[in-house]
Design a protein around this nucleic acid. Sequence first.
DNA 1: AATTACAAACAAACAAGTCTGTTTGTTTGT
DNA 2: ACAAACAAACAGACTTGTTTGTTTGTAATT
Lengths: 237, 237
Amino acid sequence: MKPRGRRKTQQERTADTTLKLLNATIALLHDRGLYRMSTSDIAEAAGVSRGALTHHFSSKEEIIAAAVSHQLRNATAGLHKMAEGIRQSGGTSDEIVDYLWRMMKDRLFYVTMEYLPEARHNAEFRTAIIPVVKEFHAGLNSVWAELAGQVGVEVEHALVLMNATMCLIRGMIAQSATRDDPAYFDALLDFWKEQMRREFMLKNDEFPAGAGEPKQSLAALEISAARLRHQGATKGR
Amino acid sequence: MKPRGRRKTQQERTADTTLKLLNATIALLHDRGLYRMSTSDIAEAAGVSRGALTHHFSSKEEIIAAAVSHQLRNATAGLHKMAEGIRQSGGTSDEIVDYLWRMMKDRLFYVTMEYLPEARHNAEFRTAIIPVVKEFHAGLNSVWAELAGQVGVEVEHALVLMNATMCLIRGMIAQSATRDDPAYFDALLDFWKEQMRREFMLKNDEFPAGAGEPKQSLAALEISAARLRHQGATKGR
DNA sequence: AATTACAAACAAACAAGTCTGTTTGTTTGT
DNA sequence: ACAAACAAACAGACTTGTTTGTTTGTAATT
């Protein structure tokens, strides 16, 4: 695709170099951490000079923000692709939870944890990445809304479930920094998948898709009963 | 208790100075972040000389680890106190979720996010804090197990619920760095409280308290919850 | 009880290294 | 030829750990 030995156009040169730099930045963020890496390290890892780096990015903050945006955009693209997959050939909540877990675990949230403190203490940096973060969430919404539409759950509720799922995953990965215990996290994830299955099943029964008969399973009945009982009991508070 | 203007013994001097240093360290971790603060800043904030700091702590890493341990131990003490409150006068899952949320939001997890990258990239630091983290989790277990025993839920399952709750809270606070939206987080927390209520209710029905006393009335639960709320509100520093 | 001897706590300046942003010089593309 | 892309040298600003000197508490001795 790319001309092999041929000369590159200026645009190509810029694109190549910046891409190498951004990928190297993400790798270093993950492997060494934001404060254990220098711009020299980035240039070295990218295989370019530090002059090249400073030519394209005028500050460390800027290249970090660019790299983070780059990574988030990639993740967003993946999410939309997944939403498309669900639209065309369906998908289960289990699969989505697994996908999100893998996506976050595959460096995304580790990198996020590296720059979150920076976002918290550096207003400029924060405002620089917030738009991309919002794009990312729009991607998440697509996936979840797609599943909701497929199963017939209210979109509002589906979004709550999605956000809870994401927060849970974030917290799990955060904890994994001080707890090396894959079995523990697997168990937690299994628990959550079951929760999501039940949520979608339950809602599916309450709002039957299409002309389907409102068939409630025994388990669902018990759950609804318990829920109603509790709601009624606590309303007086 | 402490002699007012009188001379202090060496032990008292050490205790006072180190405490001032540790508190200042936590405050700076929260306000400025691990990498935006220097040991000079710590000494200044504590109102002692940098020489005093280096006398008690031989490296920045060491004082950070000590401060984190200090904070975690305090939190652990609070958890055990709460477990005791539940043992004596009961408590609801709602109240516990609220307590954990407040505890984490009150600097605990913000500080944690500051040193998590360090824990991830610095093996010595990690091994230094892991024992205290484990103590902390033991404290969490106490609280949750107490509630489980009270309501008749299997302890195993209760621990899963507790861990999920903690991970959810972690993830929410992490997200709060790039999303300033209290209503959103309130909604998420409300959703979760409802989940926990249902979990405990449901399990309570599945495993009715054997030959023991009939389970506490909701009114009684509410009363003890109010007590806990008050305790939690006044225990903070 | 007072003086002296010693150790711990503290203060302040120092030395060494690192990192960032800038500047100056060279190559490559248009 | 001109400008963009790149390379490399440089200067300034921290930060950390160390060192040197001073004060405060404790214990021994007389």
